[in-house]
C-alpha cells in the first residue's frame, strides 16, 4: 500500500501472495511463499522438478486450497470470498497446463472457444471467427479447427492450449512449463508467443520453467523456488550478476551443460565443416 502511494505512476499490484503454506499429508510442499506482481508484469518461477511450482500456481488460481496464507487479487483476498465472487475472479484467469489438458471430447475450435461458447453464450460463427484469430496468433492454420486434440502432436497441443488460455482475453495468464518437451525452434516460437500475448492483452503472467533461456526471454522478474520457499527474487537482468549460490548452481548447471557447450560444439563443428569443404575443394 505504502509502495503504491510512493509511485502513483499507474502501476497497481495485481497479485499479492503472503506467507502461503500448503502440504499434502506429511509432504510440506510450500513453506511460506511471498511475492507480488504488478499490472502487466511477467514473473518467471524457476525451480527443480518436484519443488512445488505447479502446486503454487494451482493455489493461486484456486484449484487447491492452501493451508495458510493470503492471496490477494486486485487487493482482495480470494480465500475469504464466497463462491460467486470467486467465480468472478476466475474470469480474470487463463492457464496453460503442463500437459495442455485439452478436452478430448471436443474439437479444437470448441476447446479454444470454450468459455466464449458455453459461458458467454456467443453465437458459433462469432466464436469461430475469434478462434481463427487466436489460432493465427499461435501459428496454426484453420486446418486444425475441426480436428480432435488426439490428432495433434504434442507441440501443437501446447499451442492450442495457449490459444485457449488467451481466448477470453484474461487479465492474468499462467503458463506451466510451456516449452518442456518441445524442440528448440518451437521453444523459441512459444517464448515469443507468451511475450506477445502478455503484451497484446496487457496482462500479467506467471511462467514456470526449467529453461533459463525461456526465463530470460519472458521475464520481467524472476523468482527461484527451493524447498518450499522463494530463495531469490530479482530482475531478469540481475540473474547473471547474482551471488546467490543456489541460483548460480541452477543457472550454471544449465549453462555448462547446454548453452556454453552447445556454443563450443557449434564452433567446433563450424571449423570441422570449413576444413571438410576445403579438403573437398582441394580434391576436386
Amino acid at each position: 500500500m505504502i509502495k503504491n502511494k510512493k509511485d502513483t505512476s499507474t502501476k497497481k499490484s495485481k497479485i499479492q501472495v503472503i506467507d502461503l503454506h500448503k502440504s499434502f499429508g506429511k509432504n510440506h510442499v510450500l513453506r511460506g511463499i511471498n511475492f507480488e506482481i504488478e499490472e502487466g508484469e511477467s514473473l518467471v518461477v524457476l525451480g527443480g522438478s518436484g519443488s512445488g511450482k505447479s502446486v503454487l500456481l494451482k493455489c493461486v488460481i484456486g484449484l487447491l486450497t492452501p493451508d495458510k496464507g493470503q492471496i490477494l487479487i486486485d487487493g482482495k483476498d480470494v480465500l475469504k470470498m464466497n463462491t460467486r465472487q470467486r467465480d468472478e475472479v476466475r474470469h480474470k484467469f487463463g492457464m496453460l497446463f503442463q500437459g495442455a489438458a485439452l478436452f478430448d471430447s471436443l474439437t479444437v475450435w470448441r476447446n479454444i472457444g470454450f468459455e466464449l461458447l458455453y459461458n458467454q453464450k456467443l453465437p458459433a460463427e462469432k466464436v469461430q471467427r475469434i478462434v481463427r484469430q487466436k489460432l493465427k496468433a499461435v501459428g496454426l492454420g484453420d486446418r486444425v479447427m475441426e480436428l480432435s486434440p488426439a490428432e495433434l502432436s504434442g507441440g501443437m497441443q501446447k499451442r492450442v492450449g495457449l490459444a485457449r488460455a488467451i481466448a477470453s482475453n484474461p487479465e492474468i495468464i499462467f503458463f506451466d512449463e510451456p516449452t518442456t518437451g518441445l524442440d528448440p525452434i518451437m521453444c523459441g516460437v512459444i517464448d515469443k508467443l507468451i511475450v506477445q500475448s502478455l503484451r497484446d492483452l496487457n496482462a500479467c503472467g506467471i511462467t514456470i520453467t526449467h529453461d533459463i533461456a525461456t526465463a530470460r526471454f519472458v521475464a520481467d522478474k524472476i523468482a527461484m523456488l527451493k524447498e518450499g520457499k522463494l530463495v531469490w527474487t530479482g530482475k531478469s537482468s540481475d540473474l547473471k550478476k547474482t551471488k546467490n549460490s543456489i541460483v548460480k548452481e541452477f543457472i550454471n548447471g544449465h549453462v555448462h551443460k547446454t548453452d556454453n557447450s552447445s556454443i563450443k560444439a557449434s564452433k567446433a563443428s563450424k571449423k570441422a565443416l570449413e576444413v571438410a569443404t576445403k579438403r573437398r575443394e582441394q580434391t576436386k
Binding site: 494451482k58 488460481i61 484456486g62 484449484l63 467465480d87 476466475r90 474470469h91 484467469f93 487463463g94 492457464m95 497446463f97 503442463q98 500437459g99 489438458a101 485439452l102 478436452f103 478430448d104 470454450f114 468459455e115 458455453y118 459461458n119 485457449r164 477470453s168
Partner: peptide
Amino acid sequence: MRVTEQIDALSTLATD
C-alpha cells in the same frame, strides 16, 4: 479427465 487435468482446466475456464 481428472488425471489429465481436464477437470482443473474446466475450473480455470470459469465452468463448474
